[in-house]
Amino acid sequence: MDTSPEPAESVKVLEVENLVAQYGERIILDGVSLDVHEGEIMIIMGGSGSGKSTLLRHLMGLERRASGTIRMLGQDTAALTGQEKLELHKRIGVAFQGGALFSSMTVGENIMLPLQEHTDLDLRTMEIMARMKLEVVDLAGFEDLMPSELSGGMIKRAAFARAIVMDPKILFCDEPSAGLDPVVASALDDLILRMRDALGMSIVVVTHELDSAFKIADRMTVLDAGRILFIGTPDELRAEQSERIQNLLHRRTEEETGDPEEYLRRLLGERLDKEGHP
């Protein structure tokens, strides 16, 4: 990734400070802070339950945070009015894990939807723009198919095309290679790199696939149990000596450390009150 600009000197498109998220009394994210720079691919990694999907939902503005700030493209997302939020959303793109294509529309209509809703372009121009984006993701000629007629990899690529149709400043990708065979997954990684280089946007990818993460990352964030374990370049991550990181990199499961009494209580289904008494 030698083409990428030096992070420290470039503009920050996304700044997260002390983000806390909780569902009921369960804390999912506990003081998460990270930055994403212009033109950078940031990978957010972590095992299941680490809070990475929740973090992504907060970044996309789909959840209400408990505390902390998220500044996107220079704007504090909590301070925006409904209309300002809509305007901000026009400048970000999201490729969802399952594609989230509208099943009642063709691929072409799916991709044109943001243009139809947000621009005054005539239909012909919108069709041309949609085809251009389909070319970018190697799906040219598929615009008249329904999403149900596409394969898993094609759905993801169509979702990418829809996500970039408004030329967003930031693109969020949720598990782009989940559920795909290695060859298709690798092609998607190449596509992400190509989109960044061609369109110059910042890309935030949430994934648990190590190979793919190391291949495309400029910087990586590792989440564990709602806290940030590590932020840095892939090389720094490889060199990191901490046991948890090494376990993650070598796909080792962590030893369960706990006291036998607690284990017994769990088996018996006993709950503790606030002072820790059964």
């Binding site: 789909l62 305007e87 959303h89 999201v94 399952g98 294509l101 939807l113 943001p114 809703e117 947000h118």
Partner: peptide, 22 residues
């Protein structure tokens, strides 16, 4: 319900399209 489960509602929201209006 199906659109919610397929994240289509989320997709509308992040595209800046209000699901109630749409």
């Amino acid at each position: 319900g199906i659109m919610t489960i397929n994240q289509e509602i989320d997709a509308l929201t992040v595209m800046g399209i209000n699901p109630v209006r749409y």
